[in-house]
Design a protein around this nucleic acid. Structure first.
Lengths: 199, 199
DNA sequence: TGGGTACCAGAACGATCGTTCAAAAATATT
DNA sequence: AATATTTTTGAACGATCGTTCTGGTACCCA
């Protein structure tokens, strides 16, 4: 804990630097990214990074947390907007599909990390797992509200469907990152929409 | 192209060595795996690997091809068995879900590779893309046969549904690799089964 | 203004990376 | 048996990895 009232103040914007690092990790993954690339992207010297966050791994974890704040919470907020819950969900799913179809789509940093690390690294796995639960919760809650407003059948198990939607999201992010056909992504979207109409 | 009729014969089983390398790549990914780990797993010396396949990248590509032969073609064969096509498909999907729920599940090498490399590496991306098309074809064909036998509604677009199943498969493999809850995987399976009953 | 603190830039660290060299060992052909 | 060809082994290569050290500089507070 540095004394904020003594010494030279920081010259770079830590938020901007963290988001620059996040972008590199997002595109390349953890192992394939070097500290030099990260510092170049952030526009700071190596030592500044080490003084600031500690090491490459800490920067990676901080990047995931920033991603969570920006994108995962952003998705949750989109689902929580006023108006039709089912409309929000459909809008969100369409936005996901549109993103997955972009030619420079890099998938989702959380999905990418889940796949790169698997379950071997406990700290990373638990971080990924908690974000995944957050996503399931977000889907479940919007489905609960949709059911309360009669937009989806009463028989829908919202938690189960939310969990399945999270798995589907993983699949769509992989499809986008690996440049799979627009048809695959569109048809997956159709499938989800059909699912939401069922009991 | 070595002259097979002269010199000392190879001592190790190339198929067994390739499958050992495949297992390491499968579990750890490309970047996180060192040549030393590969040679240890294969039980051969470094130079033997370089004389045999060329380099680490060539060994990786050969490992993916071996995986395709063993597991992807294995899945296609399972779908092509005599008897009920829909039964074959359901059995295959259940096997996938069972695998994804195993505690030491490493996902799918093709899905893992798609996610690690993205679209940046053209050779790898096209290899992954061709295998993905193969998977879509396998799903499409079993759905065609199921439709011909009246096991699924006439209105089902088999190609679209096959493409969506491939995306779903990716999602389930990521879920398995990252140790997501059994509930998520089971509910995804339920969702697919419900889908197959629809028009 | 002087002392303390934190930043910046670049060189340098040991470790490990993928790869190659050099020499011994082994087998098929002549 | 002699020779040619290939495998095996283990050391060694240059490059790059993440990290740390070294000086020098800029800033806050007393």
């Amino acid at each position: 804990m540095p004394d904020a009232r003594r010494g030279r103040p920081r010259e770079f914007d830590t938020d901007a630097a963290l988001e620059a690092a996040m972008q590199v990790f997002w595109k390349q993954g953890y192992e394939a990214t070097s500290v030099g690339q990260l510092c170049d992207a952030m526009g700071i010297a190596r030592q500044s990074m080490y003084d600031w966050v500690g090491d490459k791994r800490a920067l990676f974890i901080a990047s995931i947390d920033r991603y969570r704040q920006l994108w995962i919470c952003g998705m949750r907020d989109m689902l929580s907007l006023e108006g039709s819950p089912l409309g929000n969900l459909r809008h969100c799913l369409h936005a996901m599909a549109d993103y997955a179809k972009k030619p420079d789509c890099d998938g989702c940093l959380v999905t990418n990390t889940a796949n790169e690390f698997g379950t071997g690294d406990e700290e990373i796995a638990s971080l990924v797992g908690s974000i995944d639960e957050f996503i399931i919760d977000a889907f479940t809650q919007v489905l609960d509200r949709a059911k309360a407003e009669g937009e989806i059948p009463e028989g829908v198990d919202t938690r189960s469907t939310g969990a399945a939607l999270a798995v589907l999201r993983n699949g769509m992010m992989v499809a986008g990152r690996s440049g799979q056909s627009h048809e695959s992504i569109d048809r997956t979207l159709d499938l989800i929409e059909a699912l939401l109409k069922m009991g």
